[in-house]
Design a protein around this nucleic acid. Structure first.
Lengths: 123, 123
DNA sequence: CGCTTATATAAGTCAACGCTTAAACGACGC
DNA sequence: GCGTCGTTTAAGCGTTGACTTATATAAGCG
């Protein structure tokens, strides 16, 4: 299952946003999501399971509570999928240099060959 | 409809990948996708419509053909949504300094918390 | 030990969505 | 004009998947 399939759900996105601020228990996530989306606790638990199984979140038991935390890998995968489109909005900012460093580093990590072939937007 | 809802479909993702290489006609997209996914031409057309209406693609008529091109805005929106998670995989590269400037600023804006301020779990 | 709290799982229902076939639309050539 | 190609739209069907209620598990506490 592709990471983006998992992100194709507003509840799951919201859960990840919550986890982005730090570890949260299932109950904490549930109460927020329940309030915002009006769905039941089991529904939230099911979404947490999807996130878990897709590698977006890890769990840690603390007593009877389950503490969830963001796991980077699939999100990074999405980020890398976006790479091929970055040229469409970064092409004009090349002069800014620094801002683009991230993208450039990304490419450098990806392939270290010294071709200097530009950001694929080389019209 | 959130951009990530649209990307939650493998066919649409593949179409965008094709368009990332440059303008393509509906027919060109269709034949590739048909081959790869085994779906009909109208099905592809419907996906193109979704991409169009969500702002992921723009169309240009050339004779009887419709030439599709990637439109950046919604993809950028996704990229910005990912910003809040960048810290989870970029944190170790802090030494690179300048490279990370954007990401760090983002995190600072998002959460100003130092270490255990109000995460609720009292530990 | 039960009772409660925190969470997960099971089973079943219902709507959304993607697909198909069929038809419409518009440009082109004869 | 008429047939045809490229493409979109319409209508209907089927499946996926998100939700609900009910139940299970498991820890904490009296």
């Amino acid at each position: 299952m592709h990471a983006l399939d998992v992100l194709g759900d507003p509840v799951r996105r919201r859960i990840l946003e919550l986890l982005a601020d730090g570890e949260r228990s299932s109950g904490e996530v549930s109460s927020v999501v329940r309030a915002e989306f009006g769905i039941s606790q089991p529904a939230v638990s099911q979404h947490l399971r999807v996130l878990r199984e897709a590698g977006f979140a890890s769990v840690r038991a603390e007593g009877t509570r389950r503490l969830y935390a963001v796991e980077a890998a699939p999100l990074r995968e999405v980020d890398r999928w976006l790479d091929r489109f970055r040229g469409f909005w970064e092409q004009r900012l090349d002069a800014l240099g620094t801002e683009l460093a991230r993208g450039k580093r990304q490419r450098r990590l990806d392939q270290e060959r010294g071709g200097g072939s530009g950001t694929d937007a080389e019209t």
